[in-house]
Design a protein around this nucleic acid. Structure first.
Length: 908
DNA sequence: ACGTTACCCTA
DNA sequence: GTAGGGTAACGTA
């Protein structure tokens, strides 16, 4: 039996969460444009802590305005920090008010930082024998950790005790200050030791225990880094002092003065309404409604919705649920399966939710030793089939494409896909978050969900769902449905409130789900024997190259190892270093070897070997292995919530990077074939991004060029180089093409000069000349940059948003990168929207009119690939072209070029 | 066994 | 200069 302990006092570092929430969360605003992202983030973290530490005294500490004693010690302290952005500053007051209304003591002490207040209170508590939990996102606080003080990062859900500090940093809490002093801090402008990072600091502290001893023995440290250490000996004591959190601040109050007060519901409701924090409003209202029946003692308030999860193994109970599902306006639905790979997956159970907090799991295929008797899978699926196939019964799920695919394995055609939380989250903010359910629950509901790993384990020993005990599987699966439902309630209003996002979700991403599902299930046909033969040829040629390379080098080595290549090229042969990798090692990348190949044989051999090895390992070896035994075809996965711009991505295999540029590579495309009696039709949008640029910018010259159907690169060359269209040389056209691509990518003179191998000055002249001839484009580029800076996001033609959190970053490089994204995203994203619209339309048309004659099988960003019956070839080709062209009404024609052939190479 | 780095394939 | 995914090597568990 253990002693009943006093609950720990919880000290919350509000300021550290303020910044993190501001950067991590999407730039949400109220309908009156008051930003709320940081409010939401900080408050939901405090609420989580209230749940996790019931009965604890909690104190929330923020930095006060103005300078602190550290500035007096060191003028340059935090001199690198930019002023707080306005849209963060204006959220501080509301947070303070909400914290107060929640009844929590709020502290801001001028002249010191929040850290010091926390350090002092922690010190006071431990001296009285009370344990302390410090909630912070700031690693510097690790110095406070002791047997009685732990850290918790409520954002990342990690707790750190003494052992945790040692594990994370490699030094004890007592050594953290010295560690921080050595490493320094760019943001706070603490100098530290030049070139000394975490690794070096840990190494030194391991050998010398503390900073003073290290300084005494600094003469023993060899090499350049030793010199840097000796250079820093004068500033190190200052660095150490700056890094030290004070535990002896003279506060005019003590812990006992900081009382929790009763939460002021009325005030809180008013604040939540003002900042439109909908889910919390609903919760408060519910609490108020139910508080009469709640006559228990004044406990921790029930921030959680009461959860009623059931596991159904009784037919009567299932019937009750089915009845309710049929009557519901919308129900959440989830399948548990044997595998994440949709082609192999079988249903292990299904879960449902209609009302928040209430959910049911119906286990159907748990087959571990001693599993309880369950309802018969096929019988239940048969019972559910009419329900799941009814397009009028609206279903909600998280990534329903997967569920649709899995159900197809059981001959169920899921229809009525009405809402999908993964897509809601993606459309709301494609960049700021991952869109898996666990992340979404944390972000939008402030709730930690049961992870699959926690019930199934991980790595090779991970169990599949059918092997998981019902006691664990039930809550997990039911929670999936419940969380999905509650997420939808949180996300859907946000979509409706934000520009045209709801329409992007409703008319583009959601209707695409069944289209992609069918494309995935259809798969594509591949000639495995051609690929295997190709693999063999590649292997032979590679062996020759390898032997030659070994002879030339005079030693054997692994041609695929950049490290060994470096040793041979730069250490042994002494070749010039043309470029370095990001980590500073001399690069052996393709353009470098290309350059070196002028004077040496070895780089050429490596280059050829490398390109063949790439083709072999990525394509010719792998693709045949991915052929499904049941269908004889290859089934990719299209991911709808991955890219920042709205494009799809493809994996296992990635069909969007099948080679085309080299002859050897095209042989791989030749292995993508049509079935007997069919041809492959490949239709692609010609110059779609440039056309979108013409449309968005409204530039007269560009619009005219496209209207006349001119060769756009030639037309550009004629303008930039001042020659007639007929007089454009091949070189001029090539340059113009690079300029046009550069424009789409947010070009700089530097980038263009490298691409064209001309001086930066010449590149700049080209750019200037271009903008002179196409002034509308320049104006558009300027506008879009300005818009990005003002709004923090850019939009596609259809209103899909891309947030650019780094557009106003202090780091100029980051800011410029964000500007390039701002320029590129509307074009790339609009193109993505257009082809998605085309896919929905084409699929609908084919299913309606040509069910057995043609089917869409692949999408590669601006290209659709279909299998078409030979007899219907011309009809389908023209219908396809016209539908793709009509997928958007632009001020320029959308030209589509479609070809046909026995394989993808021929069709393209 | 897992994560990171360097490299390279596509639009 | 934009946006992705996959592989081998390599370092750390």
């Amino acid at each position: 039996m253990t002693e009943q302990k006093t609950p720990p006092v919880v000290l919350v570092d509000g300021s550290s969460y303020l910044f993190r929430a501001y950067h991590a969360l999407p730039p949400l605003t109220t309908s009156k444009d008051h930003p709320t992202g940081a409010i939401k983030g900080v408050i939901s973290m405090i609420r989580r802590l209230e749940q996790d530490f019931p009965g604890s005294k909690m104190v929330v500490v923020f930095d006060a305005k103005g300078k602190t004693f550290r500035h007096e010690m060191y003028e340059e302290y935090k001199a690198n920090r930019p002023p707080m952005p306005d849209d963060l500053a204006c959220q501080i007051q509301p947070i303070h008010e909400i914290v107060k209304a929640m009844g929590l003591p709020l502290l801001t002490v001028s002249g010191v930082e929040a850290d010091d207040v926390i350090g002092t209170l922690a010190n006071e508590a431990t001296s009285k024998g009370i344990d302390v939990v410090v909630s912070t996102g700031d690693k510097d606080m690790a110095q406070l950790v002791s047997d009685h003080v732990t850290l918790i990062n409520t954002m990342t859900e990690t707790r750190m005790n003494r052992d945790g500090v040692v594990e994370k940093f490699g030094v004890t809490p007592e050594q953290i200050i010295d560690y921080l002093a050595l490493v320094g801090d760019k943001v706070d402008n603490i100098p530290g030791v030049n070139k000394c990072g975490p690794k070096t600091a840990v190494k030194w502290l391991e050998s010398y225990k503390d900073l003073d001893t290290l300084i005494e023995h600094s003469g023993e440290i060899k090499g350049k880094i030793g010199e840097y250490l000796r250079e820093a000996t004068e500033t190190l004591p200052l660095s150490r002092e700056l890094a030290t959190i004070r535990t002896d601040v003279d506060l005019d109050f003590g812990l006992e003065d900081l009382e929790l007060r009763q939460q002021d519901d009325d005030k809180l409701l008013e604040l939540f309404r003002e900042y439109e924090l909908r889910s919390w409003i609903a919760e408060l209202e519910n609490d108020a409604a139910s508080s009469h029946s709640d006559n228990g003692p004044d406990q921790q308030k029930t921030a959680d919705i009461e959860k009623r999860y059931s596991v159904i193994t009784d037919q009567g109970e299932l019937d009750q649920w089915v009845k309710r599902l049929k009557a519901a306006d919308l129900f959440a639905f989830d399948t548990e399966t044997t595998s994440l790979r949709y082609m192999d997956a079988e249903v292990v159970g299904v879960s449902f939710a209609i009302e928040p907090g209430e959910a049911a799991y119906v286990p159907l295929g748990h087959d571990y030793m001693g599993a309880p008797e369950q309802l018969d899978r096929d019988t239940v699926l048969k019972q559910l089939k009419p329900l799941l196939e009814d397009p009028k019964l609206a279903k909600l799920g998280q990534n329903l494409k997967y569920d649709k695919n899995v159900l197809a394995n059981h001959d169920i055609n899921l229809e009525g896909i009405a809402e999908d939380t993964m897509l809601e989250s993606y459309v709301l903010n494609s960049v700021a978050t991952r869109h898996d359910m666990d992340s979404l629950a944390m972000q939008y509901l402030g709730e930690k969900t049961i992870t699959f790993e926690s019930i199934a384990g991980k790595g090779a020993k991970q169990l599949s769902f059918n092997q998981i005990e019902l006691e664990k599987a039930g809550p997990y699966a039911a929670e999936d449905a419940d969380i999905t439902l509650r997420l939808h309630h949180a996300l859907r209003p946000m979509l409706a409130d934000t520009g045209k996002l709801a329409s992007v979700y409703e008319t583009i991403d959601l209707p695409l789900v069944p289209v992609l599902s069918r494309m995935e299930q259809r798969g594509t046909l591949i000639n495995a024997s051609v690929l295997r033969k190709h693999s063999q040829e590649l292997a032979e040629r590679m062996a020759e190259l390898e032997q030659e390379a070994h002879e030339v080098a005079g030693e054997t080595f692994n041609l695929g190892s950049p490290k060994q290549l470096q040793a041979i090229f730069y250490d042994k042969m002494g070749l010039p270093v043309i470029k370095k990798t990001p980590k500073g090692a001399p690069s052996t990348a393709e353009p470098v070897l290309q350059e070196l190949a002028h004077d040496h044989e070895l780089p050429r051999l490596i280059l050829e070997h490398r390109s063949l090895s790439k083709l072999k390992s990525t394509y010719t070896d792998t693709l045949p292995e991915l052929i499904n035994h049941r269908t004889g075809r290859v089934h990719t996965s299209y991911h709808q919530a991955v890219t920042a711009t709205g494009r799809l991505s493809s994996s296992e295999p990635n069909l969007q990077n099948i080679p085309i540029r080299s002859e050897e590579g095209r042989r791989i495309r030749q292995a993508f074939i049509a079935p007997e009696g069919y041809k492959l039709v490949a239709a692609d949008y010609s110059q779609i991004e440039l056309r979108i640029m013409a449309h968005l910018s409204g530039d007269k010259g560009l619009l005219t060029a496209f209207e006349k159907g001119e060769d756009i690169h030639k037309a550009t060359a004629a303008e930039v180089f001042g020659v007639s269209v007929d007089g454009v040389s091949g070189d001029q056209r090539r340059s113009a093409k690079a300029i046009n691509f550069g424009l789409i990518y947010g070009m700089s003179a530097f980038g263009l000069s490298r691409q064209l191998d001309v001086s930066r000055k010449v590149a700049q002249q080209y750019i200037d000349r271009y903008f002179e001839r196409y002034p509308g484009v320049l104006k558009y580029m300027d506008n879009i940059r300005k818009q990005a800076h003002d709004d923090g996001f850019v939009e596609t033609l259809f209103g899909r948003r891309l947030y650019l959190p780094e557009i106003n970053a202090r780091n100029k490089q980051m800011q410029q990168a964000a500007e390039r994204t701002a320029i590129n995203a509307p074009m790339q994203g609009t193109a993505a929207d257009i082809i998605k619209r085309a896919m929905i339309e084409v699929e609908d048309w084919l299913l309606r009119e040509h069910g057995d004659e043609a089917r869409m099988t692949m999408q590669v960003h601006d290209e659709l690939i279909l299998e078409v019956k030979e007899s219907a070839l011309e009809k389908i080709r023209s219908g396809l072209e016209s539908r793709m062209s009509a997928a958007a009404e632009l001020d320029v024609p959308l030209l589509v070029e479609a070809g046909a052939g026995d394989n993808w190479d021929e069709a393209h």
